[in-house]
Design a protein around this nucleic acid. Structure first.
Lengths: 199, 199
DNA sequence: GTTGCGATGTATCGGACCGATACATCGGCC
DNA sequence: GGCCGATGTATCGGTCCGATACATCGCAAC
């Protein structure tokens, strides 16, 4: 989960922990709240020992975009992380290997979706459909509760079920739309002016 | 979290673990997916050593409703848990002491909301307003992203933000409505005794 | 100039919760 | 009689969170 998210962000640009967390929070803010440092730093360490990322600025070849954002200024005390070539492979591998755990959790789906621009069409479709199935199941469960046991629940529990059901129906409709687009190839492609940096 | 949920359910009726999990899943299904046994059983053990619940059928006084649901049949191998008097106090205490952690997480809010029928009006209002504030903050964050950095995001990330924003706006509206009802006293009370606004 | 203060930044620890797994029993159905 | 899916209890490793502790930087007030 976090591994995929971190690799994905570092794929775009090298970064230090603090900035990483901020980007994580805004980019994935729709589906999960915020990433804790208590998971971020240990994960960074693990990724480093696994060889997916390396400490320090990129190997002098890459001209590290001089953006307005203060990303990789290796100032005092800051530790800048850069994704390695193996890390990029690992990223693609994780992107494609999208099992049930991908759509089972909100966070899992959110992270994968956030990197759909780098995911191949077949995998995109598979994830969207898996997610839809999952949400439909939840929806059916709530419908059953509401139709079969409504009179045995208090008003608040009832209201909670209704709200949840509504949210599920909405998400299913959203997913249907995305799936339809995906099949048509209508989906706005990522700015294809950027054809694969390396690998 | 789990502690509150378990005490709340056992407050309604004694139960064994399996049934507890099923009820947990349906009652709180709107906001959190499912409870794992890996958290349920250890928590049950802890609640027991803390004295909030006890193993075995109720102390012979309570006539354990002979419902159609097979709840407390102390058959072979089953362990039935019953809430103690101290447990009921603890439950009320947890219900009322609703700090920020209550509305920070989906699950926390969901659990508290599910037991609103047993929560006093002032606490209900406090929780609803805290939650609203929290969701509004998330909403503002996403609005900023969409208005300030939309052109720098790919189509999928954009769509994710839009979907998240929509969900937030919807939840805020839902909360507004609940808060308004709460202030009017329009909210249906638990079935106990409410001759004023019965339907 | 120095003092204080909020934003930036790195790091760890205990605990909550999950996912997989193992295993035992029960009620039918063939 | 045997098989199988529901029911039922339990544990283990791992992921992630929340609180906390510091250290530094820019800057404004005095």
């Amino acid at each position: 989960m976090l591994e995929l998210a971190i690799l994905g962000l570092l794929h775009e640009s090298p970064m230090h922990g603090y900035e990483l967390r901020k980007q994580l929070t805004t980019k994935l803010g729709a589906f999960r709240a915020a990433i804790s440092y208590g998971s971020l730093y240990p994960t960074l360490r693990r990724l480093q020992t696994d060889g997916w990322i390396s400490e320090g600025a990129p190997p002098a070849g890459m001209p590290a975009s001089p953006d307005e954002v203060p990303l990789l200024t290796g100032k005092r005390g800051r530790v800048v992380y850069t994704i390695t070539a193996e890390g990029k492979e690992r990223f693609q591998e994780l992107l494609t290997a999208a099992g049930p755990e991908t759509y089972d959790s909100e966070a899992g789906f959110g992270v994968h979706f956030a990197f759909f621009a780098r995911t191949d069409p077949a995998t995109r479709l598979r994830i969207l459909e898996g997610r839809r199935r999952r949400v439909e199941e939840r929806r059916e469960g709530m419908r059953d509760v509401l139709s079969r046991a409504a009179e045995r629940l208090d008003a608040y529990t009832l209201e909670l079920q209704r709200h949840g059901l509504d949210a599920c129906e909405r998400e299913v409709r959203w997913l249907e739309e995305l799936i339809a687009n995906e099949r048509n190839g209508t989906t706005p492609q990522p700015p294809s002016a950027d054809p694969e940096r390396s690998s």
